Computed example of a mutant assay.
Amino acid sequence: MDDDEEGNDEGEAARGLRKIIHVDMDAFFASVEQRDNPELRGKPVAVGGSSGRGVVAAASYEARKFGVRSAMPSVTARRLCPDLIFCKSRFDVYREVSQQIRAIFRHHTDLVEPLSLDEAYLDVTTDKLGIGSATRIAELIRQEIRAKTKLTASAGVSYNKLLAKLASDQNKPDGLCVIRPGAGADFVAGLPVRRFHGVGPRGAEKMSRLGIETGADLAEKDIAWLRSNFGSFADYLYRAARGIDLRPVRSSRIRKSVGGERTFSEDISSGPALRDTLETIIDIVWGYIERAEASGRTVTLKLKYTDFQIMSRARTLTAPIADKSQFAEVSRGLLDEVLPLPLPIRLMGLTLSKLEGARDAAAPPADDAQLNLL
């Protein structure tokens, strides 16, 4: 938001408008691998396990053209893209690069809220260098990231976090999008509801059945109707459809848990199928844990039966989970405790809690929509 287009700083402050930037690295893990290995450049690359139970942690843009996506089973990814090249994850390298990027952010502002290793919100309403223009700061940050890491980043600039995040995804990869004061509602109106954070494929399908395809369709529904159809997710949807988000950028907000769930297209009940599914969820959730740089002591297994009753089992250790193998061992033990199941299940999830040092992604509450992150 340049000053000659957004108004001067005094005017913005008087109206209580913030200047928010959301920076999102482009295919971060895969881009680091392509940077460090020239033979991978221009080729479809996936970071993750290539075995039958492996999961894609990240995919290059060349791979995404074939439909390969993060959290996808590796066997599915290879079927979509037979020439896909798998690389083992190197989280020590990704963390090192992430620290370089965060140092660039903090050169401009102390109000930095990391969401993971590869994305963050910045509040530059008052920036350290006195530049004043959020758009110019975003441009400088992207230039500095490219110069220091040889990687590209996309950025969204707006007056709240919701809009800044939507904007950062608008012109990917290596793009910049600015949503200026007063333009948020119109911008959101033209978006498919699938673009709203927290609305996954199943949530979008439900909305489509109810005649909701875009932000404009969603904005036509009153809060009572939304609550009757979407429960606790309704308040977020009501505000999002109008481009409203009052959350501040919080540089020290602590996440309480890291986890993920998976809803099945068909109910499952057999021990082998349940164990295979658990392995997939272990891979996915551990990826979230590493990206959030989380360390925790409690592992919780969640199961939802076909009659929608929820059962959970948890185990708390005396010391934080040391590594993925220990997380997997505890998770498998929790599943073994409840087998055989009295009914087939339609959902399985894992969560790590009692965390130390993980930052909160400040995601909106979601019912089944949250599951589609997997």
Rank of each mutant, 00 (worst) to 15 (best):
S257E: 15
A241K: 02
G271Q: 09
A241V: 05
Y238T: 08
R253F: 03
R239T: 03
G259Y: 08
D267N: 09
R275P: 00
S252Q: 05
A240S: 11
A241I: 05
A240P: 12
G243L: 06
A273Q: 11
D245N: 14
R255C: 13
S270C: 02
E261R: 15
G243Q: 07
E266I: 11
S251C: 09
D235N: 13
V249I: 01
R239P: 03
P272M: 10
R275L: 09
R262D: 04
V258Y: 07
V249P: 01
L274P: 02
D245W: 10
P248D: 13
V258H: 02
R239H: 11
A273K: 07
L237K: 05
D235Y: 07
S252C: 01
D245A: 14
P248I: 14
S269F: 11
A241Q: 05
V258T: 03
L246F: 05
F264G: 02
D267R: 12
A240F: 09
R275W: 11
A273L: 08
S270I: 03
R250W: 01
R275M: 10
Y236K: 09
Y238C: 08
G259W: 15
I244D: 04
R242F: 10
L237C: 05
R239V: 03
R275S: 00
R275A: 07
S269T: 10
R247I: 00
T263M: 11
I254Q: 07
S270W: 08
S270M: 03
S251D: 15
S265P: 01
V249F: 07
R253V: 10
D245Y: 12
S265F: 02
P272Y: 13
P248H: 08
S269L: 10
Y238Q: 04
L274Q: 02
K256D: 04
S252M: 03
G243T: 07
A241C: 07
S251H: 09
D267G: 04
R275G: 01
Y238G: 05
S265N: 09
E261M: 13
D245P: 15
D235G: 09
I268A: 06
R262P: 00
R250L: 15
